[in-house]
Nucleic acid binder design. Structure first.
Length: 1049
RNA sequence: GGGCCCGUAGCUCAGUCGGUUAGAGCGCUACUCUGAUAAAGUAGAGGUCGGAUGUUCGAGUCAUCCCGGGCCCA
């Protein structure tokens, strides 16, 4: 069938290939040919599509979450590039912050502020600078292997001088707008790291762990109250706490106004406690008597004696206050308040003019006011304090309490809540504006806008942006060191600094920046000095500054920034609604009064098989390396892209990568097979195909229209940032091409290279493959590149424009027709199945009943061949095959008939209806208008007929056999048996053979009659009918057996 | 305790404006077909749509409550 002198226009493709190997070769090729750069320079003068790349922490290795984000960060820009836009992709690195410092401390074997200072801030920061970039190589390798195109050369780093200057500028902008203030506030505080942490810092690293703490219920002796206990005993408030160490700092107690409390008495002591917690104290309150029940508001104003006397003189203190946050879930319904160590406590006490006390130093030790515990870490004083309470007879109850408590992610020590001085952005003053601006952002999934993100903005609190640390952008505030001559200077540029300090800094890091001091201009004595405050920025302030800081705005690139802000598109995981999305929103609203981005995809979290977050400790995920080697990165990309994870849901991934192998098996391999088929036969026939949209062959038309449909679908979905939606249209398409178009067209691809229809087939398949490699290129960039380049010899599919559908056929109705043809074939096969008639047995005819079905005859051959039948009969109606069934339009009739709809429905289903001459229908006593019902065909019960296209067509097979048909069936059985034997003997497709067969007389006569048919299809040079005693009998069907011998010619 | 998301077949998920008998893909079983294809076709098994109550002629879909999971905030 093939001749050796045929010219081969396509590479010889293996049917089974190693996709990982192909991928690696493509990556090498891209590298060599600098394809990414070319894709950018091609679009030099095009409209820009602005993408912001969120900077990862540089000192960790990339994991699945990064891979996932990375795929999306690649898919959308590739698509937009093909759509004619220029899409810059600058990589960014988040260099500053606590993780970087902690890593350095570990590497240097030092810990804590004191040791860093001894080591030298300059040395320490130098080390941070090196250490923080140590995994950049690994990042480049991984990002490269996932076929993500990123510009690593022009990357930005948050530790660059230019970047830091822009951050400084941003702070000055906020300062000038009056949005910055400095204040003591209670914050999560790490006494190991000696710095407060922002609330999202404690969350993002999953810092909550189980911890067992003592929980004590203590007695506060009442000194003055309006309550009447009807006796003269001493009275006490019962309060509960899991942090006994905060008791020395107690300044008040709080109750809920509307909570019910009981006044009770036992053993000559009175107590106040919430009524519905009494059952938790049955033992301690055995034999108690309830004096009366009251609402919390009656207790307000009651005064008590502090347990510790350190702050006895504090004004307005030691009273019962009202607080909304009090509940009776745990404890006593009376909350002990230490405003130095609880945020809620602080707010309530401030409202009541109580000045807070905070007798704990930076390292978590009591200061000297607390004489008894001076210098001891607060956690170590818990037991000592409990002992003291016992001695003083103020301990009412002691328990162990297990709860989730935040820990420092690095050092594992429990955090404390502690009042510290910090710089704040007054976010609450413009949160309404953020909510408004948020309306202009398109979120994927949509519910993020009003849900997670919208709600977060509505409740936004002021943001603590300073950290008492070393490695970070400095807070650019200089203060007078003498409170008698106060002065504050804030700087927004290097130039401003130079003006006042006569030096232009070349490094804004500590300790260099701290060396800039000058005499206080407001101090006539000339003795005080302007010194920088010691804090550095929260690194989230820096990443939030990325839109402008990455280009050193406003000092450079002014017009660039103005045309590249806001971004068209960003993507990160859903948790960034508290992180990067949020901090960008804050800064962008405050400084520019604009949203920072227009479209944002929030993807979900990658989990293991059991729904547990992936973690290095658990090793509960396959190494990316393994996935690359086994399946390649396109499989992983598709697995992610087609999954619900892009709609904010979680995605489970198992150790063996099952979902990933399914992707390869169900998507990539079938696509490859279509390509392989094309190359195999085009080479065999010596054909060079060309792009051609004009074939009128129905199969070609169908393939082209399916392709057009696919292009439109992927384009619409990707334009709307619905990547999973784009993927979803592909399996159906591949099925149509492989299992219908190619299968039905197969004979057109061989043995008649000169034939017009054949070249149409080649051209069409070529055109289909060419177009799908284009539209799939964002979704599987490596495999589509391989197919494209092998198919066309072109440079790269990624340098092309998105295909236009202008050239494709317009007859979209044709698609429906062909789909009905496919349905008819399914019905035919189904009828065969239920009647137990094998497909090789030809049948006489298929009967199709319905209105206006003549068009089906155009497609006659496909049906005949697919279900092995001789003829098609089309009829208008047939009483024996179907009944007419009336279907009511419930949407219309439901409201009209109300309760009677049931009766009407029953009538319709029992065929108690008739159509009137005016087109109305009568069912039982109801009259239905013409548009309130429809008539469909319903096949008669039995095995011979099936409904198609929702009852518009009924198909039936004529099942009777005659001698001719039986003989032909036997001939096909024989052929199949010969073919199987060839396969068993490993003969080549083109080997010619000689055949000897023996069977009964019916078999013999079949073979004689269909000798040509058998020999042509099995490449048999000769077929002899001859007795074969030695060879085994083979069943060729349920009834027939033959003996068969074949050998190569 | 509050907010957001989710709960539909063994698995992964669709399910429009509430509408008659709840779908797809994968997996499983049987049969069929097959010289590009580790492919394909036909069928079968597999569902109290997390639970309850309510609204309605009618609820997977709407409302309320509860249960379970995830994320976030207290």
């Amino acid at each position: 069938m093939k001749s050796l002198e045929n010219k081969k226009y396509y590479p010889e493709i293996e049917s089974s290939v190693s996709f990982p190997n192909i991928e690696e070769e493509i990556l090498i090729k891209w590298n060599k040919e600098k394809t990414f750069m070319e894709s950018l320079s091609n679009r030099k003068d095009s409209k820009e599509f602005v993408f912001y790349d969120g900077p990862p922490f540089a000192n960790g290795l990339p994991h699945y979450g990064h891979l996932l984000t990375g795929f999306v960060k690649d898919i959308i820009p590739r698509f937009q590039t093909m759509m004619g836009n220029k899409v810059d992709r600058r990589f960014g690195w988040d260099c500053h912050g606590l993780p970087a410092e902690m890593e350095s401390e570990k590497e240097l074997g030092i810990s804590g502020r004191k040791q860093i200072q001894e080591f030298g801030v300059e040395n320490f920061n130098n080390h941070c600078k090196e250490s923080v970039m140590k995994y950049t190589k690994e990042w480049e390798i991984t990002v490269g292997r996932q076929a993500r195109w990123v510009d690593f050369v022009n990357d930005y780093k948050t530790m660059d001088l230019n970047y830091m200057e822009s951050v400084m500028w941003a702070f000055k902008q906020l300062w000038d707008k009056g949005l910055i203030y400095e204040k003591d506030r209670v914050m999560p505080y790490s006494w190991k790291a000696e710095t407060p942490l922002s609330n999202f810092e404690t969350r993002l690293d999953d810092s909550y762990r189980e911890r067992i703490d003592p929980a004590v219920t203590v007695k506060f002796e009442i000194t003055e109250t309006n309550l009447d206990f009807n006796n003269n005993h001493k009275s006490y408030l019962l309060a509960w706490t899991t942090t006994p160490w905060t008791l020395p700092s107690n300044l008040a107690c709080a109750v809920g106004k509307n909570i019910d409390y009981s006044l009770i008495t036992k053993n000559n002591e009175n107590f106040i406690i919430a009524s519905n917690v009494l059952e938790n104290f049955t033992e301690e309150l055995k034999d108690m008597k309830i004096i009366k029940k009251i609402k919390g508001e009656k207790i307000l104003g009651t005064k008590y004696e502090p347990i510790f006397s350190y702050f006895k003189a504090n004004k307005n203190s030691f009273r019962v206050l009202s607080a909304d946050f009090v509940n009776t879930e745990e404890g006593t319904g009376i909350v002990h308040m230490a405003p130095g160590f609880g945020e809620d406590d602080q707010i309530v006490c401030e409202e009541n003019n109580i000045q807070l006390v905070c007798p704990v130093d930076d390292q978590g030790r009591f200061t000297k006011e607390v004489t008894d515990y001076y210098g001891i870490n607060v956690f170590d004083t818990n037991e000592k304090i409990i002992l003291y309470l016992q001695e003083k007879n103020t301990l009412f109850k002691k328990e162990k309490y297990t709860h989730n408590y935040p820990h420092s992610w690095r050092t594992d020590e429990p955090l404390i809540y502690k009042s510290v001085n910090s710089w704040y952005v007054n976010v609450s003053s413009f949160k309404e504006r953020m909510v408004e601006l948020n309306q202009g952002i398109n979120w994927v999934p949509n519910h993020i806008k009003e849900g997670t993100f919208g709600k977060w903005l509505e409740g936004a609190k002021d943001w603590s942006i300073s950290r008492n640390r070393f490695w970070g952008s400095p807070i650019p505030v200089w203060k007078s060191d003498d409170p008698k001559y106060p002065r504050v200077d804030v700087y927004g540029s290097l130039e401003d600094l130079e003006k006042d300090f006569q030096v232009k800094p070349t490094n804004l890091h500590r300790p260099f920046i701290d060396k800039l001091t000058r005499p206080n201009p407001d101090d006539p004595t000339g003795k005080s000095t302007m010194k920088r405050v010691s804090e550095v920025f929260d690194c989230w302030f820096e990443s939030g500054s990325m839109p402008f800081a990455q280009v050193h705005y406003p000092f450079e690139n002014k017009s660039w920034f103005e045309s590249h802000f806001p971004a068209d598109f960003i993507v990160e995981y859903i948790g960034q609604t508290r992180g990067w999305f949020y901090t960008m929103m804050v800064l962008s609203t405050a400084i520019f009064d604009k949203p920072p981005f227009k479209n944002c995809i929030c993807h979900g979290i990658v989990l293991d098989k059991n729904g547990v977050k992936l973690s290095k400790k658990l090793r509960n995920y396959p190494e990316p390396e393994l996935i690359w080697k086994k399946f390649g990165s396109d499989s992983l990309r598709w697995f992610f892209a087609a999954s619900p994870i892009l709609k904010g849901q979680n995605l489970q991934i198992d150790m063996e990568g099952k979902g990933i192998s399914d992707t390869q098996r169900l998507i990539i391999t079938p696509l490859w097979n279509a390509f392989y088929f094309f190359c195999l036969y085009a080479n065999a026939e010596g054909i060079k195909a060309k792009e051609n949209y004009t074939s009128e062959n129905p199969l070609d038309l169908y393939a082209l229209l399916k392709t057009k449909e696919l292009i439109n679908s992927i384009e619409n979905n990707l334009s709307n940032y619905d990547i999973a939606g784009a993927c979803q249209s592909v399996p159906n398409f591949i099925d149509a091409i492989n299992n219908w178009y190619i299968r039905r067209s197969r004979p057109r691809f061989w043995k008649h290279a000169d034939n017009k229809d054949s070249s149409n087939a080649y051209d069409t398949l070529f055109t289909v493959l060419l177009n799908i490699t284009k539209v799939l290129s964002p979704l599987m960039p490596l495999i589509s590149e391989e197919i494209y380049t092998k198919l066309t010899g072109g440079k790269s599919v990624h340098l092309l424009n998105w295909p236009t559908t202008d050239f494709f056929p317009k007859d979209d109705d044709f698609l429906n027709k062909m789909d009905i043809i496919r349905e008819i074939c399914s019905a035919g096969l189904s009828i065969r199945k239920s009647n137990n008639i094998r497909v090789r047995q030809p049948l006489e005819e298929i009967i199709l009943v319905g209105e206006n079905l003549e068009w089906i005859l155009e497609f006659k051959d496909y049906i005949l061949e697919e279900i092995n039948i001789k003829n098609i009969i089309i009829q208008k109606d047939s009483d024996s095959l179907y009944k007419e069934k009336l279907t009511i339009d419930l949407r219309k009739l439901g409201p009209k008939l109300g309760k009677n709809i049931k009766d009407c429905l029953e009538g319709a289903n029992n065929y108690e209806w008739k159509i009137n001459e005016d087109g109305t229908a009568k069912i039982r006593k109801y009259i239905l208008l013409e548009d309130e019902y429809s008539i469909e065909k319903e096949s008669m019960p039995g095995t011979q007929s099936e409904e198609i296209n929702k009852g518009e067509i009924v198909a039936s097979l004529k099942l009777e056999l005659n001698q001719e048909l039986i003989k032909e069936g036997i001939a096909r059985d024989v052929l199949r048996t010969i073919q199987n034997k060839r396969k068993d003997l490993n003969f080549d497709i083109s080997d010619e053979i000689n055949v000897i067969i023996w069977g009964d007389t019916q078999v013999q006569s079949s073979i004689k009659q269909f000798k040509d048919y058998i020999s042509i299809n099995s490449l048999a040079k000769s077929i002899k009918i001859q007795e074969l005693k030695e060879t085994e009998e083979i069943n060729i069907s349920e009834e027939k057996k033959i003996r068969l011998f074949i050998k190569k010619n």
